[in-house]
Amino acid sequence: MKKYAKNPNTVASKLDDELVMIDIDLGKYFSMNSIASSIWEYIDTPKTKEEICDELLNEYAVDRATCTQEVTLFLEELIQMKLVNEVT
């Protein structure tokens, strides 16, 4: 099953409820809202989509189907921005 891991070439920090980060090589800044930053924290160690959803379901009032759909979209976006890598 596919796992998702952070691109190690980033430095991140909390800015109130948001997470802000910089891509070291590109020098580009990104920011994430509180749910997105929770996902970012979960993937400190590589995790599957299901494992990420398990964590989110513990923290937020959401059903599994919606959660999986949102997480999938978000991870695709992060992969496109090269902030997250797929690992096996």
Partner: peptide, 18 residues
């Protein structure tokens, strides 16, 4: 001021890593 400082310091951290 705090937000601007945060972004500047992130850039310094990135530069230090390079």
């Amino acid at each position: 001021i705090y937000s601007a400082n945060k972004f500047t310091q992130l850039k310094f951290a990135a530069e230090l890593i390079k």
